[in-house]
Simulated scan of single mutants.
Amino acid sequence: QSNQCSIITISAVWFFGSSQKMEAAYGLAITITMLMTTVLLHEFLKKHLAKGTALIIALFFGFIELIFLISSLVKFIHGGYVTLTIMLGILYIMWLWYFGNKRRDHYEKESEYVSLLDYRDQLSKLSADNTVPLFTTNLVYMTKI
């Protein structure tokens, strides 16, 4: 396992070209993580405190972290672009996941699901029928497990 860690570390250093560029990417990643944590803290505090109090706390920390972000943006051209590229990729996946779940929930509310248990006898007969190919490509069973 230490060989795998060594290979990954060497690959990362080789990709960045120097440890200074890795440091720049890491610094920018930390700053962005701090800002995202403040956003999550605000969402949490809105449910447990008055909205105004939650906003004041979030603005206080957000202002300090925004100053860090502005000072870290210089690092963008020295390797920080990797951090932002990875962040945008993860954000895109989360965006797809969120709206995909909303779309699925929309269909669940509109349509009425049927239980496969109601069709157990038909499915048993179908699995015993040799005239139907075993692996059929046009069967879809929408189930919620």
Rank of each mutant, 00 (worst) to 15 (best):
M36H: 07
E43D: 11
G79R: 06
T31M: 03
M94W: 13
L41S: 09
Y92F: 13
I67Q: 01
A58F: 11
A24H: 12
M94E: 15
S72M: 13
F99R: 08
G79V: 03
V39Y: 02
Y26I: 03
L123W: 04
L41K: 15
N101V: 06
A50T: 10
Y98G: 02
F60D: 00
Y119A: 02
M34E: 15
L91M: 13
T37A: 07
R120G: 08
S71P: 00
Q20L: 14
K109H: 06
L116C: 03
F68P: 08
T38P: 07
T38I: 15
I70Y: 09
Y119S: 00
S111Y: 10
Y81W: 11
D105E: 12
W95E: 07
H42D: 06
Y107K: 07
L69I: 11
N101T: 10
Y81D: 05
A24N: 11
E43M: 13
T33K: 15
G89L: 14
A24I: 01
L69T: 03
Y113S: 05
G79K: 02
A29G: 04
I56W: 07
T83F: 11
G52E: 12
V114W: 05
A29R: 05
K51R: 06
I86E: 05
A50I: 05
K47W: 05
L59T: 05
F60P: 00
R104C: 10
I64E: 10
G79D: 06
I70W: 04
G52F: 03
D118Q: 12
F68Y: 15
L117H: 11
L123K: 04
K102Q: 04
L49S: 06
E43I: 08
T53L: 02
Y92D: 03
L84H: 12
G80S: 12
T37R: 12
M36T: 00
T83R: 10
F44A: 08
W95K: 09
M22Q: 13
K47C: 02
R103F: 13
L49D: 07
T37K: 09
E110V: 14
G27K: 06
M22T: 14
F63C: 07
K75P: 02
F61N: 12
M34T: 14
V114S: 12
K51D: 01
T85V: 14
I86C: 08
G62K: 09
A50G: 11
K47A: 11
I56N: 03
Y26E: 07
T85W: 15
I70D: 02
F99T: 15
K46Y: 04
D118T: 08
A25S: 13
M34C: 15
L117S: 09
G27W: 03
T83S: 15
Q20S: 14
K46Q: 13
S19G: 02
L55V: 00
